[in-house]
């Protein structure tokens, strides 16, 4: 089973040289720590920065320089700044190669719910709806089951949706799973020490799994 950093480390293997990438809040942000040394990716922050650098050292902290998670950051060499309309033009216009975000639920048809629990939690969707409606390559980073032990990989989402038929791949503490249009979840990799049965038990939606599922190489 993977911890949060393990999930981020596995997702980092999906990065390719030259990618422009938008990282959501939470586990996705950690992916930045595991970018392979032999490739260069440019991280987009939807509040108006292309080229997020590392967190600042104390003397560099600037309240005017934050990421979409409101964390203080620095700018990488070659970065650019712009306003929110321009930022979402990049996103809607399909210029982002990979979007990585968290979720509360994902369905076997690729629907995602991530922004609201009616009557309990109202935080808003932020940029997630724009991102999932526009990106062609979306990876969800999340825990396989919720705090009550219920599966988050469902036949149908129960919570208000963020977008429909958009998620391509899911990486959890247990598995790497992709979504085949018209078929459902397909198990691609197991986390170290996790069996196919354990993954099946934690997955409520329909899931294809070959006999010989490889263990993740991380």
């Amino acid at each position: 089973m993977l911890d949060k950093n393990g999930i981020a480390r596995r997702i980092a293997q999906e990065l390719r040289d030259g990618y422009y990438v938008n990282l959501g809040i939470g586990i996705p942000t950690l992916v930045a720590n595991f970018i392979p040394e032999n490739i260069q990716v440019v991280l987009q922050s939807e509040n108006g920065l292309l080229g997020i650098g590392p967190f600042p050292v104390e003397s560099e902290v600037d309240a005017d320089l934050i990421n979409a998670g409101k964390q203080t950051i620095t700018m990488a060499l070659g970065s650019s700044l712009f306003d929110s309309a321009e930022s979402f033009a990049m996103i809607r216009g399909g210029h982002i190669d990979l979007t990585i975000l968290g979720a509360m639920e994902v369905s076997e048809t690729g629907d995602i719910a991530s922004w609201k629990i009616p009557g309990k939690m109202v935080k808003g969707m932020g940029g997630a709806m724009d991102l999932v409606a526009s990106a062609s390559n979306i990876i969800v980073a999340m825990q396989h089951v919720n705090k009550q032990g219920q599966s988050k990989l469902l036949q149908q989402c129960t919570l208000p949706l963020t977008g429909i038929k958009c998620v391509r791949k899911i990486v959890t503490e247990l598995a790497v799973i992709d979504i085949l249009p018209g078929i459902g979840f397909r198990l691609l990799e197991r986390a170290p020490g996790v069996s196919v049965d354990e993954i099946r038990n934690a997955t409520q939606g329909h899931m294809l799994a070959d006999d010989d599922i490889p263990e993740m190489n991380i």
Binding site: D83, S84, R92, G124, M125, G127, D130, A133, L161
Partner: peptide, 30 residues
Amino acid sequence: LIPQGTLAERIRAGGAGIPAFYTPAGFGTE
């Protein structure tokens, strides 16, 4: 509550004299 890109573009449209526009954000959601 409005998707962030839609919010940005609705404001941009307001200032640019464009009364409405089409966006994919939020299709299939509430």
